[in-house]
């Protein structure tokens, strides 16, 4: 991918490409005075799974949180550059991050069901956005739990607390909870690092099913997982401690893992560091 200088100018919006769901141009990210990311440019394709890989502390999760403006909640953070969703600048003055987060769902490393029933967990989002009728809620809860492959296990215990489920079930409950608000994009921040292998398998299968309707971006430490689940892979690296991290290489997963263009990617893939 090559980019002209003009594309880095503020206010530039890339032409809406049917295949491009999210476009990032010249993104810099700051925690106070510390610059965590520098000059990141990439396109996230629609209805695909994109994996972010790289050593710990290379800013993958920080970058991920830029897409639903979750970093706005951390005091002293600053974003420069451009991120568009369907051609719309998500950091434009008129954009309400609350509305944005409805369209871009997020799954966290630690399964985080709310301390309420399974049903109420899934119904939480729809209720937030004004759904009141019991019949409508019942339907959304059932559909979402089915899409998250959890329905069979919980259909008779919907009134039980979400926290009584196993870790893997909790994570699928969180996925159901996000799907209930029908997002276009699903951000997953190391969704499998705190759960058992059987559940990991279920969640990976789930991602393959979901990508026909949802664009998925997953941050993972596990390179095998990135190779298994993703269509495209981005490799991030912070070369010098205290310096910002950058996007080293981005491309089709098969290419990245078999014939990386950059020496640093190759070193990381083959396990020479990180």
């Amino acid at each position: 991918m090559s980019h002209t200088l003009a594309e880095h100018q503020p206010g530039f919006v890339p032409t809406a490409d049917a295949c491009v769901k999210i476009a990032v141009r010249g993104l810099d990210f700051f925690y106070g005075d510390f610059q965590a990311l520098t000059d990141i440019t990439c396109d996230i394709r629609d209805n695909s799974v994109t994996a972010f890989i790289g050593p710990s502390g290379c800013g993958k999760s920080t970058f991920l949180r830029c897409f639903n403006r979750m970093n706005d909640l951390i005091i002293g953070t600053k974003v420069e550059g451009l991120i568009t969703l369907d051609g719309q600048d998500i950091y434009a003055p008129g954009v309400d991050p609350v509305d944005l987060r409805r369209r871009i769902g997020m799954i966290f490393q630690q399964p985080n069901p709310f301390p309420m029933s399974i049903y109420d967990n899934v119904a939480y989002g729809p209720r937030l956005h004004g759904m009141k009728k019991k019949a409508d809620l019942d339907e959304v809860v059932e559909t979402s739990l089915k899409r998250a492959n959890l329905w069979k296990e919980v259909k008779d215990i919907l009134g039980r607390g979400g926290l009584t489920l196993s870790g893997g079930q909790q994570q699928r409950l969180c996925i159901a909870r996000v799907l209930a608000v029908q997002p276009d994009v699903l951000l997953m921040d190391e969704p499998c690092s705190a759960i058992d292998p059987t559940s990991v398998q279920k969640i990976e299968d789930l991602m393959a099913e979901l990508k026909s309707t949802v664009t998925i971006i997953i941050v993972t430490h596990n390179m095998q997982q990135a190779a298994r689940v993703s269509d495209e892979t981005a490799f991030f690296l912070q070369e010098v401690m205290g310096e910002p991290a950058m996007l080293v290489e981005f491309g089709r997963t098969a290419d990245i893992f078999t014939s990386p263009k950059d020496k640093r990617t190759e070193d990381y893939i083959t396990g020479r560091f990180g």
Partner: peptide, 26 residues
């Protein structure tokens, strides 16, 4: 815990919705 609040914000909840429906009950 912070991550429970994030779960709520991540679903497009406003601050007040998060405080009144998640944080206070918890």
């Amino acid at each position: 815990p912070k991550f429970i609040r994030w779960g709520s914000y991540g679903l497009g909840a406003t601050k007040w919705q998060t405080v009144s429906r998640i944080v206070l009950p918890a």
